[in-house]
Simulated scan of single mutants.
Amino acid sequence: MTRHNRVGRHTAKLLMASAMTLAAWSGVARAEGELHLYNWSNYFAPELLERFEQETGTKVTVDNYASEDDLLAKLQAGGGGYDVIFPGATTLGVMVEKGLLAKIEVSQMENFKNLLPAFTTIAGDENREYSAPYMWGTTGFTYDPAMVPGGKLEESWKELFEPRDELKGKIAMLNEVSDVWNAAAYYTGIDKCTEDPAEAQQILDLLMAQKPDVRLYSNDGTIDRMVAGEVAAHMQWNGAAHRVKEKKPDAVYVYPKEGTSFWTDVIAVPKDAPNLEAAKTFVNWMMSPEIAAIASNYTGYSNAVSGSGEFLREDLKADPAVNTPEDYNDRLRAFKACSPASKDLREKVWTKLKS
């Protein structure tokens, strides 16, 4: 998941407020030492690294992973010395089940009161014992009108799964099993939590038929790839689509009519985090309105913190890729916790596709 953006024009306003932050937030404790974050690339504002260090005395460093499979493997191998991680809802549930996370009682933290009601619980961590919300958004696709026949594509996954001849070899997919599987399930009308091998085979058949037409599967470089015109259409997260439009204003983000995944990334702490107390301070800090706004302004995604709106960039509020039009609400499909049997089918399909 490539997350690249610049902090918006409200940055100066936020920085001027920095001097007052310590007095205003009693929840930010002094926590000297080092804090090691493990996150997607370009998915955390550098400004926040400096600000947390200034306000707490804790030095923050960030390492990046390329997929949630990499993140899960790292934790299963011992955690790699990381204090804070940023998994998606699917991986969060797996981590809770496997006992890989510290129970940090997020619902008891001071700034938990700032969360929007819809984000006070999440599948797999219903009581918010292990995680706080980070960014949320959707998974659709973006296209460049100048590179497609007639300048317009249908609002359907068909444009990627059964591309017209002019687009073959000029489309790209994400390299994330859940996103690709879910989109294929929506398009075929199959329950994304199916346990039926025959239905899984239908999804595999669709993906294998599409594979020769896909230029590449990648989570990294999706923005640069679209801006450079390397592909005409790209499966993307909506924040990446917003950043494409900053460089290519005519680019169109599509909410496919068959279904568009609605996802939430979270902030969590590995069970063997070297600096547990600093990690808990950090999680609470990230639920503050001004801090959440800085994160959104950088990533281009929405956050779950009430009161952050006054600090958001106007272009984020105006972009339908970020601020989903009401007419598309019925296309949004929330995360579902699938059974082990369903997950096993999904992994088998993905392995065959990528082999």
Rank of each mutant, 00 (worst) to 15 (best):
T2C: 08
T2I: 11
T2H: 14
R6Q: 07
T11C: 05
K13E: 12
L14G: 09
L15K: 04
S18D: 08
T21V: 13
A23V: 09
A24C: 06
W25C: 10
S26P: 00
V28L: 15
E32W: 03
E34P: 01
E34V: 12
F44C: 03
L48E: 12
L49C: 02
E50G: 09
F52C: 08
E53C: 03
T56W: 11
V60Q: 09
T61Y: 03
N64Q: 07
N64E: 10
A73C: 05
K74C: 10
K74Q: 12
L75C: 07
Q76H: 05
V84M: 06
F86G: 05
F86C: 05
G88D: 13
T90V: 12
T90S: 11
V94E: 13
G99P: 07
L101G: 08
S107H: 15
M109D: 06
E110P: 01
E110R: 14
K113R: 14
L116V: 06
I122S: 13
G124Y: 10
D125P: 04
D125F: 04
E129W: 11
Y130P: 02
S131Q: 07
M135P: 00
M135D: 11
M135Y: 06
W136C: 03
G137R: 03
T138R: 07
T138S: 10
T139Q: 04
G140L: 09
G140P: 01
T142W: 00
D144H: 07
P149Y: 09
L153H: 06
S156N: 02
K158P: 01
E162M: 01
E162W: 01
P163K: 00
R164Q: 15
E166I: 02
K170P: 00
K170H: 09
A172M: 12
M173N: 05
D179E: 05
V180E: 09
N182V: 03
A183M: 08
Y187C: 08
I190P: 00
K192S: 04
T194N: 10
A200C: 04
Q201E: 15
Q202W: 00
I203R: 13
D205S: 10
P212W: 02
V214I: 14
R215C: 00
L216P: 00
G221R: 09
D224G: 10
M226I: 07
V227Y: 02
V227M: 00
A228N: 15
G229W: 00
E230P: 01
E230Y: 08
Q236W: 01
H242V: 06
V244H: 02
K245I: 02
D250W: 12
A251P: 00
V252E: 00
Y255H: 10
E258C: 11
G259C: 03
S261M: 14
T264N: 15
V266L: 15
V266N: 14
V266A: 06
V269S: 05
P270G: 12
D272A: 15
A279L: 06
K280E: 06
T281H: 04
N284E: 09
W285G: 05
S288I: 05
I291V: 15
I291C: 09
A293H: 10
A295Q: 15
S296G: 11
G300P: 04
N303S: 14
D315L: 02
L316D: 07
L316Q: 07
K317N: 04
A318D: 02
P320L: 05
T324M: 09
P325K: 11
P325N: 06
E326C: 00
D330F: 13
R333C: 02
A334E: 11
F335Q: 12
A341L: 04
D344A: 15
L345A: 10
L345H: 01
R346H: 12
K352W: 01
S355F: 03
